[in-house]
Design a binder for these strands. Structure first.
Lengths: 218, 218
DNA sequence: CGTGCAGTTGAGCAAATTCAACGCTTGTGG
DNA sequence: CCACAAGCGTTGAATTTGCTCAACTGCACG
């Protein structure tokens, strides 16, 4: 159960390198298979989630079927945190995924008593806002710049010994970047043909020339 | 000065219609002329702001000069609220603008003591996040859909007796929607030619056919 | 009365999409 | 074990959307 002593307010670290804090210390484990829905748009936002392993996408669909992916979440990331009482996006497991589930009400109750926890909740929402703002900036760029932005983001968040492991399909990438799968595919092929990246497989990418990539990032 | 009794925590309203709460009750008045900078990107975020009259745009520029407008703020709106200690965007007055300036440190100090104020700060950031997410969704749409989204948004936020008063230029609209001014202009002309809207002047628009607009919104 | 800025309009062009075909891998059932 | 279907990714050709470049109008302001 959630108890006060599970929430040591003195453990706060002012410059949160990754998402440390109370949210790291609690939650019930839960597993989802590939493409399983974790929650749906407009469902009550009673829980938030921390990815343990696997990967998650959040998305919305327009009436005619176009899908916008809001974000990808990797191990360590927190998602499902909404200020309103309903989820603005749906969430699905991209691959088999383990998460920790945290009761929102319990967390808010703690936040009401412990201002440090309240501050961490605010901080998480603020970081999500920054992410969304960066996403907006990416969406006004050219196709090549968007793909490069994405690869540079993934290099930080999903690389193992200099090699990016993409958990998501070309369709997911396209829907994240507001492009078609063909454009994503063509752009990556072009980046490879200029020795800017290397594709060991369609899901394994190595950035060969970071200087060029940063220049192409706009 | 900021005093505890300026912050009646019992005044909290759980379903904030507009941005009510502690932020409504304080702040030093300040005025900015048309196009004046209120703050710059990367400057320390020591203050937040509430628009009293006029209008504000926040924006970022890419290295080659492309500008992305993050949001427009109208009277009653709060802006400049960042979770980090630096502003992620620059802010400028669109027209002559009056704002109330609130010291962030003071507000955070109060939030540390009063969990209701902390919750309101969180709520404001959450609302900003929702806005950014809606903006992302708009940016994957076609040009016409983006313009329609914009007009529908402005109908809610900037209309007086059934008529939208746009405080911003075509360039601002274009940079908000990720389009060119020519495309914005052409699209609006086209909407007028189909009797969907009426332009009494370039800054004064009437929505003639909301049903069509909602259909065109994607 | 000119000058400058904001907005509109037109013609041609480029970037990204659409439509279509094909290769590769994976899983499934005969 | 093989045949075959399904999903994913890539590639090509034609098309479309929105952009670039350019001219022109209306209006505010000196």
């Amino acid at each position: 159960m959630l108890t006060q002593n599970a929430v040591p307010s003195h453990s706060f670290c002012p410059s949160l390198g990754s998402q440390k804090g109370v949210v790291e210390l609690m939650g019930a484990p839960m597993a989802f298979g590939r493409n399983a829905e974790i929650y749906g748009e407009n469902e009550p936002a009673d829980y938030l989630y921390r990815v343990v392993s696997g990967a998650v996408r959040t998305y919305r669909v327009l009436c005619d079927g176009r899908r916008q992916i809001g974000a990808f979440y990797m191990p360590g990331d927190v998602f499902g945190l909404e200020s309103g009482h309903a989820h603005a996006f749906s969430a699905e497991a991209i691959s088999d995924t383990k998460v920790l589930v945290i009761k929102r009400k319990a967390l808010e109750a703690i936040a009401g008593r412990d201002s440090e926890v309240a501050r961490q909740l605010w901080e998480l929402t603020g970081r999500e806002l920054e992410r969304a703002q960066d996403h907006i900036l990416a969406l006004i760029k050219t196709a090549e710049e968007r793909v490069v932005s994405f690869l540079l983001e993934m290099a930080v968040r999903a690389s193992r010994d200099g090699q990016i492991e993409l958990p998501m399909s070309r369709r997911d990438i396209a829907d994240y970047l507001g492009l078609t799968i063909e454009t994503v595919s063509r752009t990556m092929t072009h980046l490879e043909s200029t020795s800017t990246i290397e594709m060991r497989s369609s899901r394994r990418v190595v950035l060969k020339n970071q200087a060029t990539l940063r220049r192409l990032n706009g």
